[in-house]
Design a protein around this nucleic acid. Structure first.
Lengths: 312, 312
DNA sequence: TTAAGTTATGAAACCGGTCCCAGGTCAAGC
DNA sequence: GCTTGACCTGGGACCGGTTTCATAACTTAA
């Protein structure tokens, strides 16, 4: 493989001069520039990316940590991320964790090893303290509100406000017994925490009977539908953590010829459109774009993306 | 940032010895190994990834070329890819092209510059000849059948067989006037070419009246539905290039209180399940996994993934 | 005429690792 | 006692770039 030294030797000029030509710097005589360029073209030379990265101390690559890639929530964020990164000449590397803490730690160590310029956590299992510890090795961006005074950049949607807003709307429309579907029931999951909080503000204490935990896919939603359909006393509406899950809930009722159950989804996917139920569009592409900008900036700013309630 | 030389200096041993310790090679005295490890731990040392990559001449990174990330077709492939890559200790970098030839060329040059060990084309605009030219710089994997005697690795689904199979099934069930929806109408798109060929085998020449081109999203499908609904004489079924597009077709008929139009989708997404129309599951995750294995292998094998017809 | 600034160039250090090779110790086998 | 081979160690070349710095020629303004 031909390298910069070959070009230097063949052109008769120094490596420094060739480097200047490569990087379009000034202070190179026109004739020499032309000759060097000619030889580079002739030898079909392309500078080695890794060597440049080593010398420059940066890779122009950003790691995106997520539990899995095939979920619409993460897919939409990634979409925004990839577009923004492309426009800025950065690369996006996908880092699946399956919610495994050890794996997350591995990615943090890769940040230390300079494999990425920054890490974006679209979801996390590690504590904020852990993440802060790694902050000095590169920018770290969260996709949730870490709270004030945290030295971490974050892009997030105004989940709580939008949830409260939606739940109040539901309450005003006479839905008093609201079922809730969540993915995970731990403290770290921002979505879980915020949903509980919003529910509390509107409906008061969340009866555990009204809660279905562990829903990620359509099938899970179907099971949630089954659960609520058999609940006595029942619920009169269901607030879900995703459109596909909401579609599952509705479909269970449909399949069993029960009266349709009003459902609220999230993400504004095709499923809520087809089944015509209300949803919250968190504008996740915008979230991804914002997260990318924070990842390349040096600030620890917080960026709020407005959610949109879509009534159907 | 502390580096291997610091560790060497502080431990009193040579860089070579420290390197051996890092890489768990033998021929290091136990005491020295222990001491070096202690110092590395003490200084919180992690070897620089980029430097290792440069020295090793490989990045353990694979670039995945695709038009855009947010389409379910590519999302499913990426999902399989990411899982397989993770299991093998490789990283996946997303390379969007928006079908731009220049951008594709850029990624090929990045392969030359050793930024990736291999490139996987989930879709391409470049000619096979161009890709073959870059083969010497790293493994190149296609997600389509490049034909025999091509020195390129490829993982693909048996599209043509499954299309013929499905169309014959439809014909046997009395559907004689089959509409067809395609994304793009060029020769390079494998999907387009194969659909046309399969149609020809079953129904004979494709009447351009029966063809709707330019569908990628649900909305496009909706427009296709509008087109076919107004067509005189009409079609009695529609073969689409994706479930979401099929959903759009069906929804147009539904919204306008027309008799439902039998539709065939692809990818087995939630939308075809919700609207209960038949679809072809190409097992795209398996395709991604196979593509990854080809990317890391040195062979130019072709790998066929069986498609599955799901009747509803 | 001279000091200061601009342009041009290459040597060499540096980024942070891997690995080949030469040299040395030590125990087993003959 | 000598050869052989396994074990251990460090020097230094190498991967392929960037960048600092010293040097020099050539302008330009005072």
């Amino acid at each position: 493989m031909t390298n910069i030294h070959d070009i230097a030797r063949l052109s008769g000029y120094s490596v420094s001069t060739v480097s200047r030509v490569i990087n379009h710097q000034k202070y190179v005589a026109d004739e020499k520039r032309a000759k060097v360029e000619a030889i580079m073209r002739q030898l079909d030379y392309v500078p080695n990316r890794v060597a440049r990265d080593l010398s420059n101390g940066q890779t122009k690559t950003i790691g995106v940590v997520m539990p899995y890639a095939n979920h619409p929530y993460f897919a939409r964020i990634i979409d925004g991320l990839v577009s923004a990164a492309f426009a800025a000449g950065y690369k996006i590397t996908l880092l699946p964790t399956n919610y495994d803490l050890t794996i997350e730690r591995r990615y943090l160590d890769q940040l230390r090893s300079k494999a990425y310029d920054a890490l974006i956590f679209t979801s996390r299992s590690s504590s904020l303290e852990t993440l802060e510890k790694y902050r000095k090795y590169g920018q770290i961006v969260l996709c949730e509100d870490p709270g004030d005074d945290r030295p971490l950049a974050a892009a997030y949607t105004d989940r709580e406000a939008s949830y409260v807003n939606v739940l109040q709307w539901a309450q005003q429309h006479g839905f008093e017994k609201m079922g809730v579907v969540l993915s995970r029931n731990n403290v770290i999951s921002a979505s879980t925490r915020v949903t509980r909080s919003a529910y509390q503000q509107v409906y008061g204490k969340l009866d555990s009977q009204h809660l279905f935990v562990g829903a990620v896919t359509y099938e899970d939603g179907y099971r949630a539908g089954e659960y609520f359909a058999h609940l006595q006393p029942g619920v009169d509406a269901v607030f879900t953590n995703g459109d596909d899950i909401g579609a599952g809930v509705q479909q269970y009722y449909l399949d069993h010829r029960l009266a349709p159950i009003p459902t609220i989804g999230q993400e504004n996917l095709l499923s809520s459109r087809l089944l015509k139920f209300s949803t919250i569009d968190h504008h996740l592409e915008a979230l991804g774009t914002a997260a990318f900008k924070l990842a390349t900036g040096q600030t620890t700013t917080h960026e709020l993306i407005k959610s949109e309630f879509i009534r159907r």
